[in-house]
Amino acid sequence: MVVLETAVSMFIITLLAYGLYLYSIKVTKSFAKESKEKPLIYACGEHITEKEALLADRHLFTTIWNEVFKPLYDSLRGKIHTGILNDWFFWMFLALIIAYTIIIILGGVGG
């Protein structure tokens, strides 16, 4: 049961590493001074507000991904997922016809 053994091993190491982290913050607390710059958001030499520091959803994963796969998405979203029933029916019936043809040809019936 390889899953169990790797899980046990992963669990042990995780505990060990997390314990080390807890030990580290315990030790450092005793001699480190609390830094005062923590509450400030500092970017490119300018202080910005919290609202400015947020990213909109469309900037998150999709910008790069969208650009690289632009042709794919253009056809997927613009031509297929249009929200118009006629377009949908076209693709759905295409599927039906293809299924039908595959069954007729591969099944070798109707001859």
């Binding site: 297929i80 997922h81 949908w88 693709w91 759905m92 295409l94 599927a95 039906l96 299924a99 039908y100 069954i103 007729i104 099944g107 019936v109 109707g110």
Partner: peptide, 22 residues
């Protein structure tokens, strides 16, 4: 064969399998 083709289509529409997922 016809039974299978039509019912596969109907069931995939029911389940929402592409390209019957719209």
């Amino acid at each position: 064969g016809l039974f299978l083709a039509l019912s596969i289509w109907a069931f995939t529409v029911e389940a929402g399998v592409a390209p019957n997922h719209f």
